[in-house]
Design a protein around this nucleic acid. Structure first.
Lengths: 221, 221
DNA sequence: CCCATTACCTACTCTGGAGTAAGGCTACGA
DNA sequence: TCGTAGCCTTACTCCAGAGTAGGTAATGGG
């Protein structure tokens, strides 16, 4: 922007802490998503944020703290998007459908967020693992809750209720993996991806093979 | 141990290269699975292998090469286990069932291998990413092949055939995620986990909710 | 107008850990 | 017996990159 001479370390304009923190977090998410935790350097983050390194330490603490804060913020955003997309009182398949739709919608619009969350959410190592596990668990619990509510609404089958969390974990994993696959095959829209997973998860292969298809209800949202 | 002299860097017994390489790889898998790529140090690996560091460099090359070799070996083992568990000529659901069973069986018996493969297979960064992606792709292709073969055997439905790879990606992800979940909830056997995923993937939630259950055929190995 | 506060910077220190140079053993063939 | 090939080690070098010390400049209340 503005600078007639590139932007060679001009002293940054004075800004209130609140704003700078946001900028730093945004930069951190960008860099973390590009390089992963370990290969991201504080120097690079500070550069992207257009600020000098000590500011990061002053405001957000050490690298680990910074990362944990990123994870927390992005995970919260994502979960809110998904939860916000689910409307109570609708039939179970429709609820699931809305959840998936919100999820893939979010991923499509916030690729960086998604990369930070997923690419790093598996890797063990740092003490931020706590933050990551907590977030993942929140996701699984959320899904399990939807599934179980679904179940109790119409007398759930043995197989499903006995293993709610396991099924939720599987579903979450399928979603994650498919989201990743999608990033490499962006030709389809979020809704199409969501429908595919919905087909798999609701109908199952047994029915798909027979040519059945699940379709979203005509007039919802 | 053997505290009379501890075991203070006693010169290791002379062994043929082939054997040492195996030992080093085993140690590397152990350490990588415990700490992840970045937090694993060559020093620790050499210590676990009972050998000095330069030997690793002499035989297996730099850290990245070592890691890539580990991934390659473990991934190959796993894929062979899965492929070996699938018998051609059986009904589609049974084939899928055998595949899942082999997969979870492998994970149960080779936790270290699994951790290395999965915990690291997502994280991007090093140039070994190539190795990882290749392996993951092999897995997805394999699954897709089984699914499609299944399909063509009995006139596959539109929905399934249009998105074979996507569905395979989802299925693989579900398996991975469930395997991870299992590591934290080891109270169930591999077969039980496999049945759960089979239920989800073959019957779908729609049927599970109605109380249907998929059961393995009575007499198949 | 002045001083306290808060934003901001340059220019370091210091350590973990990858990778290597250079040289000792040991086995086996001649 | 010696020599040479190939295991094996100690003891470094070297650097990226986390984290900090100490100082400058804008802002705003008195």
């Amino acid at each position: 922007m503005s600078p007639a001479k590139g932007e060679p370390s001009v002293r940054a304009k004075r800004l209130p802490r609140e704003v700078r923190e946001r900028q730093i977090l945004d930069a951190a998410v960008t860099v973390f998503s590009r390089n992963g935790y370990h290969d991201a350097s504080m120097d690079e983050i500070s550069e992207v944020a257009g600020i000098s390194k000590p500011m990061i330490y002053a405001y957000l603490g050490a690298k680990e703290d910074l990362f944990a804060t990123c994870i927390h913020r992005e995970a919260t955003r994502m979960l809110e998007a998904v939860v916000g997309g689910i409307k109570a009182g609708l039939p179970p398949d429709v609820q699931l459908w809305h959840g998936l739709r919100s999820f893939f919608g979010f991923v499509g619009e916030h690729r960086e967020s998604w990369r930070v969350l997923h690419r790093q959410s598996i890797t063990q190592g740092g003490p931020f693992t706590a933050e990551l596990n907590a977030m993942r668990q929140r996701a699984i619990s959320l899904v399990a809750a939807v599934l179980m509510r679904t179940g109790s609404d119409e007398g759930i089958g043995e197989a499903a209720s006995a293993s709610g969390e396991a099924l939720a974990a599987a579903l979450v994993g399928a979603g994650e993996s498919l989201a990743d696959w999608w990033l490499d095959h962006p030709e389809d829209s979020a809704d199409i991806i969501a429908v595919r997973l919905m087909n798999l998860v609701w109908l199952g292969f047994g029915n798909l093979v027979d040519g059945q298809v699940w379709k979203p209800p005509p007039r919802v949202s």
